[in-house]
């Protein structure tokens, strides 16, 4: 447990620093109140709003651990959201809507996985295919409009609460814990890391890299489906044009801020989720601080750059060196001290 904590320490510190920074511009940032049976406050908004990216980041972490990347997750969100809204509009009810949306996400993931593992297309290209074509599929399902519904049970997934806590926040929490648990309590995590570091050697050692790759992309599709359900339930409508737009990039960024290497190998789901929360804190912080919207992207880019710089191993070495230098200069020099007498 302490090892996992130490792994996530840079992300936790970054998050705390960000919270402190936002609090300067918006002093009530940490205020949480209990109103109408739900917790409210900026922090609650963050854990709720961060849900889609956090969910995507969980799946993306696994894909990146195998030295892959999944560019299609934003589009898969739109597809599964469209499927869910379509099912609701057809009057089939909540349970089939959720089920079909997840099936759609898994199918997209399997498609990606097969392209990567069997056809041998590079992950970035394989998932790019679905990224660009998938939105068209979603638009076909919604017939180009925002497909709205008024099913309160489905909307609950997006805006409901359990004991005051927003459902989307619980969703990523449960998914994150479940995935981390499955990865670390079984041998999946080790096998995924092995194929990410050296697929050839792993194959010689008897690891079934193909099946693992497909499973990992399917997991990413599953997480994207959950994110799509949350986004659709949140606005009570499937917006094929805008749902999950560019979120694949935020998800990749979350994984990177989480300290996971894009070259595959060692991964931490918890750190990626923290990365997603860091991104959402930046987003929400910008909104709360009330700067003109022209500055949004510049501020976000600047903060992300600083975060990545501070976390980079190179810089931490320099930092270490700098500290040693300062300490050395502070120590009184024996000869010098004699001279002053």
């Amino acid at each position: 447990m302490t090892r996992a904590l130490r792994r996530c320490l840079p992300q936790i510190l970054t998050l705390l620093a960000l919270v402190a920074l936002v609090s300067i511009f918006f002093p009530q940032f940490l205020a949480i109140s209990f109103e109408n049976g739900r917790l409210t406050g900026p922090v609650v908004d963050i854990v709720k709003r961060g849900a889609p990216v956090a969910l995507l980041a969980i799946g993306m972490t696994l894909v990146i651990a195998t030295r892959g990347i999944d560019l299609s997750v934003g589009t898969v969100m739109a597809i599964s959201g469209a499927v869910a809204a379509w099912t609701l509009a057809a009057g089939w009810g909540v349970f089939p809507a959720v089920l079909l949306a997840i099936v759609a996400g898994l199918t997209c993931g399997l498609w990606n996985g097969c392209l990567v593992a069997y056809v041998g297309i590079q992950p970035i290209v394989a998932t790019l295919i679905l990224m660009t074509s998938g939105r068209g599929i979603a638009q076909l399902i919604t017939e180009g409009r925002i497909l709205t519904f008024s099913d309160p049970a489905f909307a609950w997934i997006g805006s409901g609460t359990v004991a005051g806590v927003p459902v989307p926040a619980l969703l990523w929490l449960v998914t994150g814990i479940a995935v981390a648990f499955i990865m670390r309590r079984t041998a999946l995590g080790l096998l995924v890391e092995a194929i990410g570091i050296n697929r050839s050697a792993s194959t010689v050692a008897g690891i079934n890299a193909r099946v693992l790759l497909i499973a990992v992309y399917a997991a990413s599709g599953f997480c994207a489906a959950l994110a799509g359900i949350v986004a659709t339930a949140d606005i009570r409508g499937a917006d094929a044009n805008n749902a999950g737009l560019w979120l694949e990039l935020d998800a990749i960024l979350a994984v990177v801020i989480g300290g996971n290497s894009l070259l595959g190998g060692r991964f931490s789901v918890a750190a990626s989720i923290l990365g997603a929360l860091i991104i959402q804190t930046v987003d929400t912080g910008i909104l709360l601080a009330g700067f003109p919207s022209e500055y949004n992207l510049v501020i976000k880019a600047g903060l992300v750059l600083v975060i990545l710089l501070v976390q980079s191993p190179n810089l931490s070495q320099h930092w270490h060196w700098l500290r040693m230098e300062i300490r050395r200069q502070r120590e009184p020099k024996p000869i010098g001290s004699r001279d002053t007498r």
Binding site: F26, Q28, D45, I235, G237, N242, P292, S293
Partner: peptide
């Protein structure tokens, strides 16, 4: 008193309005 972009989308409008209500 507050002005922020919601990118013409429903989800954007909802997220930014939440922050307005907080702020």
């Amino acid at each position: 008193v507050r002005s922020q972009t919601g990118d013409f989308t429903r989800s954007g409008g909802k997220e930014v309005m939440e922050s307005f209500l907080q702020a």
